[in-house]
Write a protein that binds this DNA or RNA. Structure first.
Lengths: 247, 247
DNA sequence: GAGTGGTCTAGACCACGAG
DNA sequence: TCGTGGTCTAGACCACTCA
């Protein structure tokens, strides 16, 4: 490992992190205002804010515009469970969530023909899905499916809070393969505004393509998960015929 | 989707993105200096730099300290393949890479006992692994294993460039389960210095825990993958008895 | 309306890379 | 050495939240 020159923002982040872990700042508590903290550490506000951005990306601090910076309650992270077990269940989050859905009929354009392996301008159903935790938006999903495969979804539905169904693929060929591609990036301005997160907070970007046994792409989903409050978990079991009982 | 107030940095990023995609700036080419671009867009340097940070996190632009900003050659992303198929193969990257390894004997401390499910201060082997692509560092891995399970690794080895072996588990109980937890966050200062990336470039942080058939944790690995040049790909095949031949 | 965070400016100074 | 990007300052102004 390379020993870097200590930078102010990391030094401040280290100090605040220590104060949070020792309980000097307690969970749920509001931190002093950024102006006060900047004075205390004798740095300018942009520098202090970049220190807070580090803690935010670790999920230790939550910023609320107009109200303050708060110490995150621990274990508040939400887990996206990848590698589906049941075709009907798309993704399981470990927390109860409220879901808003908007369904639109569109034609394949830009990157969608490639992604879904369909001709350009072929009919698709687009489902825009925003999940809320409490009153804060939490994650964003854009799901595309060929129109003839699209499930009859009630507009603005509020399905079971425990599990989020995306495609209720009942009487169709079973899913054969699911590809999930993840990357870390900064949000677009739209994404940041919709999720009400800072534009400097990294997001986990997940592209999921499900293919049925005939090789046809059944559904493609683009998920955006804020990095401060979301993990993605993939569990692979080998030698599936003998499953060890312990976790 | 919420329509945000257009911010200067996103407007500039959109414009540059467009100029790159239309070939006005070609792959491998150097962009004008940040000072020149700031003048052209009539913004201050921090604002222009934050616009470049967006493009960097998308993998479109590469910053080289002291030398300039360059248009990334496309498809230069490296893919981490999750969900192992072979117990001996830990992770496969799609590009030839050079690997530097340093092995240390340590005792379990801080978060390691929990992660590996061993008592505190129990003997572990730590392997620090830095992969290079060309002369630039590319990814960082910290691998921990109980000492009695640790493979006899030659110090500073340069194994097969195509595949990176981590545990050559030959005559031991087979792996039963692999858990891979991913999150997006900003790098620590150490990570940024070691990988020679900007501290504002998001990284994909991956924690991988492998358990053998007896439930014992065989190995835990902490990977840090720069967000601008790395994807993680997980492929789940359902109904494994009949595998569709096409991709 | 008072106080908070979000964005942006117009510089300064340092660290790095190439000639 | 010179031009580059990296970090930081000390403000300004706007948007949001809450009383």
């Amino acid at each position: 490992m390379i020993r870097p020159v200590p930078s102010r923002r990391h030094a401040i982040a280290d100090d605040l992190r220590h104060q949070i872990s020792t309980g000097h700042f307690k969970a749920g508590e509001r931190l002093p205002s950024e102006a006060q903290l900047a004075t205390r550490y004798t740095v300018s506000t942009p520098t202090l804010r970049s220190a807070l951005a580090l803690l935010q990306s670790e999920g230790l601090v939550e910023k609320v515009h107009g109200s303050g910076n708060f110490v995150r309650r621990p274990l508040h992270r939400i887990t996206y469970l990848g590698g589906v077990a049941e075709p009907a269940t798309w993704a399981t989050f470990s927390s109860p969530l409220r879901v808003t859905t908007r369904t639109t009929n569109i034609e394949a354009h830009s990157h969608l023909p490639t992604l879904l392996n369909v001709p350009p301008r072929s009919p698709l159903t687009e489902v825009l899905r925003i999940t809320h935790e409490g009153k804060m938006p939490h994650s964003l999903a854009c799901i595309y499916a060929p129109r003839d495969l699209a499930p009859a979804d009630s507009p603005t539905a509020t399905p079971s809070p425990e599990q989020i169904e995306v495609s209720s693929a009942d009487h169709r060929p079973p899913l054969a393969e699911v590809q999930e591609r993840l990357s870390a990036r900064l949000p677009t301005q739209e994404e940041a505004a919709t999720l009400r997160i800072s534009t400097s907070l990294a997001v986990l970007s997940l592209t999921r393509v499900a293919t049925d046994a005939t090789g046809r792409v059944v559904e493609a989903a683009l998920l955006v998960l804020p990095g401060d409050r979301t993990d993605a978990l993939f569990i692979t079991r080998l030698n599936a015929e003998e499953r060890t009982p312990n976790a």
